[in-house]
Amino acid sequence: MSKNIGDKIFKGLAIFASLLLILLVISLFLSLVIYSIPSIKKFGFKFLIDKIWDPVADKYGALPAIYGTLVTSFLALLIAFPISIGIAIFISELAPIFLKRLFSFIIELLGAIPSLIYGMWGLFVLAPLVQLKIGPFIQKILGFLPFFQGYPMGVGYLTAGIILSIMIIPTISSLSREILMAVPIDQREAGYALGMTKWEVISKVVLGNARSGIFAAGILGLGRALGEAVAVTMVIGNFHDISISLFSPGVTITSVIINQFAEATGELKLSALMELALILFLTTFLIMGFARYYILKRIVKE
């Protein structure tokens, strides 16, 4: 009897906690919407496709920020994903036990470094490197592509993308490592017993088993890149425009918010910043939702 009451209390608490969480998300979303209303009323859909950001004339457009966020985040994912998979495979499949531990520790360490420190390193070490070495090198080889036109300034999309990739490598690789290690031993042994080489077991069996999990790890990394603010703000260049060249400076949603929030005096400007936040919220939400849906579909199929 008393056990039953205990059960009920626990169940009630658990339900209450979950409701609280849902309430929190909804209220966050609603406050963003409410604060965005003046901007939405004034600019409407044009907010999404306008390039102008002019506090003096009180006219605001989000396109450069959206563009910059997407370019830097996907660039980061492009760089970080293969490297992270490589690290995860090395740690889970190839390394002797002491290297496994060492590398896992280093990865955790990298993940725990505050983003401000990445930003400082990016500004003082990586940016000059991109300007003087990496940029010119890429230009020599791939200079015919539109992505690598103009003179590398050091700060810009490329530098931000690289910094972001370094920041999301710990996320993606430690998750992937765990997913790879969770592939059951009997699946690997089935491969070896069939006469697969170690590499065939890794590529066909282990990665095959882990692919939806690894995909999810990539999406989580992307989510982290989309929302990263401090480090990106320090190396993106803060230039309100759009350029196809990755050497150019630009802005991201987070960098605009960070740079302008403190001095957002007018109601309309504050509202425009809130709408930017709302866009970031929705983008992240959609991408996560898509990943969830995709993974579930995969799992159901198998």
């Binding site: 009997d186 095959g208 198998e302």
Partner: peptide
């Protein structure tokens, strides 16, 4: 490749 094996529990590749 010359000696095949069937295990105690079925272990088909689940993917």
């Amino acid at each position: 490749r010359r000696i095949g094996m069937v295990f105690q529990r079925p272990n088909l590749f689940s993917n």
